[in-house]
Design a protein around this nucleic acid. Structure first.
Lengths: 204, 204
DNA sequence: AAACTTACTGAACACTGTTTAGTAAACAAA
DNA sequence: TTTGTTTACTAAACAGTGTTCAGTAAGTTT
């Protein structure tokens, strides 16, 4: 009786087909252009079919946002080889910034858009992906504290402060709130990040 | 010949009527519920009429965003009485945070949503409101530098770093990316802000 | 071969922003 | 006052959106 297994497999493949169609659309045309009908066209199915595999559009966006988190976590892997905890923290920041610049739509989806988070709210679930990613940062910050590189004893608070600064830079840039600065955005953000690192090295 | 003047006055009043209808709707029902038809209903005019006073919905949102900036700038006025520049900077941060907590929809409109900024982009104009507000911050930072409270010589960079941190905190909170923290959001943000202040006092 | 189940879709519903043709009132010129 | 012109407004339509549902055709089981 391998039929139910095959059906389950086919179901998974259909979900994958829909998600990849959606991802292709928004990585080329931008998120606003990703409608259920456009996705249906892209994968050559009817719009109604998508609702047999996803509860609504938010749930589809939530799945995309999960895929994006896998990609970010994956880009963090090189930091495992770094010995010095402060160097690890700095490299994490650089990778985070680079990810945001190279994948602005994905970053927006992960940390700015409300769509993926709304699907969690309505089934009052926790934001596991965010939780896990912040856990990674908090761990590195804790190691900095243990090594004496950071004096503040609360790794959660210190971690949130660091995350906020880097996210703030990215969010202001992605949502076009940095038009008052002449400098090239990438360079500007890199410079401010280095300034921030220097500041916490002395003051945190 | 006071007719053209009266007409101009009536035109301004109509714009005001539309804007206030729109503001009332989103301050009670949230931004998603603000449609051109809803505004039209609210002010008892036809939807098409709105387009005689605003180019499109983005321009309407842009006007609302301008009104919000007047409100924020207004809340900054008390800082003029503070002598110590570092205390001024800290109080600015507290006011900024309070504004964001008390007016989440307005903050979102001013610093996160793309709608108001898009109207600037298409007539390639500069973001005056943002420019002016950041100018205020930069001025205070410069005074901190002049007083020796901040060592870093570049007020623009330092100002952007400070803005990014505070905006990051607010943006993560408003877009529901802080669900992993048990603590009450307001308290958490206040604590992290105080930690940040302590950090820049020592390290910036 | 008949009965049942599953996968899918066309068409509709209730919205959205926006445009356009047409109307009625206000104003200007005769 | 009557005519012509401008202004202010709207009904209706267009093209799009997310979502639901009745109906169909194929796959599966009895």
């Amino acid at each position: 009786m391998g039929i139910v297994e095959r059906k389950e497999r086919e179901r998974e493949e259909m979900r994958k087909l829909i998600l990849e169609g959606a991802q292709k659309l928004f990585l080329t045309n931008g998120f606003d252009k990703v409608s259920i009908r456009n996705i249906a066209d892209e994968i050559e199915y009817s719009p109604a079919t998508i609702y047999l595999y996803f509860k609504d559009k938010n749930e589809l966006f939530f799945s995309l946002h999960q895929k994006a988190f896998l990609k970010l976590i994956d880009e963090f892997t090189p930091i495992a080889t770094i010995q010095d905890p402060m160097e690890t923290l700095i490299e994490m920041g650089r990778i985070y910034l680079r990810f945001a610049f190279e994948n602005p739509e994905l970053y927006d989806l992960m940390f700015i858009m409300t769509a993926p988070i709304d699907t969690l709210a309505c089934r009052d679930d926790v934001w596991e992906d965010g939780h896990r990613a912040f856990g990674l940062l908090q761990l590195v910050v804790q190691r900095c504290i243990d090594a004496g590189a950071i004096k503040h004893p609360n790794a959660e608070q210190a971690g949130l402060m660091i995350w906020s600064t880097v996210h703030g830079l990215v969010a202001l840039h992605l949502r076009k709130r940095m038009s008052m600065f002449e400098e090239d955005a990438q360079k500007l953000l890199d410079n401010v990040f280095e300034l921030f690192i220097a500041t916490i090295k002395r003051g945190l």
